[in-house]
Amino acid sequence: MVNHRGDYLYILPALVVMMVVIAYPIYFTIRLSFFDHGRALQFDDLEWVGLDNYRLLLTGAYSREFWNVTQNTLVWTVFSTAGAFFLGLGAALVVQREFIGRGIVRGILLIPWVISAVAAAYIWRWLYHSDYGLISGILTDLGLIDRNIIFLDDVDLVMPALIVANIWKEFPFAMIMLLAGLQTVPEGLNRAAMVDGASTWHRFWHVTAPHLKSVTLITVLLLTVQNLNSFTTVFIMTAGGPANASQIWVTDIYRIAFNRTNFDVASAYSVILFGVMAVLGYFYVRALTRGDSTRSTV
């Protein structure tokens, strides 16, 4: 039997750091979600309220906003993830081919990923500006519209506008992941399919796609987690407005905690988000370690 005591020693420093910066805040948040801290915010004078904060959120005073925000969060996450994935896949398929200037194109496509999220959000905010935005300005100059498009100040357009900005920021990540996956597709298989007369679509569907299955799963999971946790883009561009039409879970937690100073309800909210993340994390780890047991028995 192998003695793993030494291994534990190696990971001890990392474990200690994680306990301090991750485990304690999680413990504190879960604990706070069962207490009322009162309006005076004296955290050392907490009153036990059981599941009251969860009840307030799910069926009580906050419930109408919570379910609206949950709907927004689903729309935001699903469309951002799908958009970034498919745009990233398209970009990856393009830049994996040999062509002159491929390196430059790859570099250009990576720019959104390397730009600071804060800077990107401000740039998009001004592109979209309802009165003086560049997008409306160009479309007006081209004669395509006769009045500005109200992107960020319209309750119906704000979420699609934010999702587009988010997809622009995230697709290079999907591109890089999928590009790595594409390197694993045996070239011989593709050539053989070509010799057999398979169309481009058939080669992609029957040769390339099966090899991208694992990386697709991991990319989609990571994008989902990233979008569920997303804060910067929404917070800077709209802060959840107008009229909470672009409010998503994370910005709403911030709003309830720091703007409305209800850290107890915000903690319950965070615990719910943590639960969703934990489920996604479980699937992520499973996808990541799939085949490990097979390999270890070889």
């Binding site: 309750v155 009229a243 409305r260």
Partner: peptide
């Protein structure tokens, strides 16, 4: 009153936004 910041910075502006967006 201690609640003033929440009333003035959050509730009143949200009231405006709800009306102006016809939510």
């Amino acid at each position: 009153i201690p609640e003033s910041t929440e009333i003035m910075n959050i509730i009143i502006p949200e009231m405006l936004q709800n009306a102006l967006t016809e939510t």
